Every structure is written in structure tokens, then in C-alpha cells.
Amino acid sequence: MATTRDRALEAAVRLVGEQGVRALTHARVDADAELPRGSTSNWFRTRDALVAGVVLWIAEHERADMDAAMAPAATPDEVIDVMERMIEDATGRNAVRTRARYALFFEANAAPGAQPTMTAQRSIFVEWTRDRLRMLGAPDPETSAPAVLTTCAGIIVNRLTVAPGLPIRPTLEFVVRAALDGS
């Protein structure tokens, strides 16, 4: 059974992912999680603390998903397969969580304590991508890894907003192969 804290965080992610950052209040989290009034503020005294808690919860869950998805990938097709699955998950079964993460990117400026968590989370994927590109012989993995990741972020934003059916693989193949060719 989920703890009161877990229920509050799950509700907070759902609220932000479905209704935006303005929906993130202690009272709304309590109501959505069906907790007694004041429960969320017992765990997170301020809104900044609540934002930081939500960011950490998202990071922990995304990290678990990444650890499971980031299987060894030794060929360009395997790297593309991993990235495609991760984007599919981020825009499919985990779309609410992804929307919450994107909304909180901007809120992190108002909650500076959340920034290190976001930076650490991103660095895991940057490192994995850079290492895969280096292993596959990319001439400049330091430059090409951010290009690949920026493309992934663009696909995610497009699928969550204006193009839900946007094909993932053709764009990933293009950018990964260009990174490997040095084009």
C-alpha cells in the first residue's frame, strides 16, 4: 500500500501533468489523493518543497524506466530501438508524467532546489547517448549527443502537443546516422 507521501506525490504529478503547474497546491493534492486536509503540507511545508518533491519523484521513476530501457546497445539500430521505446513510453503510457516534467522545467527557476535533480537526471541520458555514439565510432560524440537528445526532446514535445501520431523512427534514424557519419 502506498504511503501518504507517495499518494500525495502521485496526485501532484497527475495534477501538474493534466492541469498544469497552477493546479499544484497542497489542498488540491490532498483532495486528488483523497487524503485528509493538511496531509501534503506535513510532508512538504512550502510550495517550493512540494515542487522539489515532485521533481525528485519524477526523476526517480524516470530513472527506473531508463535503467530498464537502456539495455546494452551495440549497433546503430539497437541505439535507435532504445531511444524509440523511451520516446514511445514518454509520450504514451507515461505522457502525464512527461507533461508534468516539462511543466516543472520552467517552475524549477522558482524552486532552485529542484534544479540539481533535473540536471543529474539529464546527465544520465547524456552520458548513455555520448557513450553509445563514441562506441559506434561517431567522430564528435561531445557535439552529436546533445543534437540527438535535442531531437528526442523535440519529438516528445511534438507528440505531446500538435502531432500525437508523429513517427519516431525516421527522425531518430536520420539524426543518429548523421551523428555517426559526422554530417
Rank of each mutant, 00 (worst) to 15 (best):
M66Q: 14
V157D: 04
I80Q: 01
L149C: 00
W57D: 12
R47G: 09
V157K: 06
E127G: 03
L160H: 08
A8K: 05
F125P: 08
L15M: 06
P116F: 11
T75P: 06
N42C: 02
R99M: 00
P116G: 13
S123E: 12
E18F: 02
S39M: 06
T98L: 01
A108S: 14
G154K: 00
V29S: 04
R14Y: 11
V157H: 02
D32F: 06
R45C: 04
L133M: 07
G137K: 12
L133N: 11
E173C: 01
P164R: 04
M83N: 01
T40H: 08
F44W: 10
D140A: 12
Q19R: 09
M118Q: 11
R99N: 10
R5F: 09
D89E: 03
Y102L: 12
A100S: 13
A2H: 13
T98S: 06
A110C: 14
A145G: 12
R63H: 05
Q115I: 10
A73D: 01
N94G: 13
I156P: 04
A2K: 14
A8C: 05
N42V: 13
A178P: 04
F105W: 13
A23R: 00
T161S: 01
R101Y: 12
V79Y: 09
A71R: 10
P76S: 12
A31N: 06
R47M: 03
I155P: 01
H26P: 00
T117W: 08
L180Y: 14
A12T: 13
P116M: 14
P72I: 05
P36T: 08
I155V: 13
A68H: 13
R7H: 14
V29H: 05
A114W: 05
R22T: 13
M66L: 15
R85S: 09
I155G: 06
G113W: 09
T46Q: 02
A8I: 04
T46E: 04
I80P: 01
A27G: 15
C152V: 15
R63K: 03
P76C: 12
D65A: 15
E88Y: 01
A95Q: 09
M66P: 04
R14L: 03
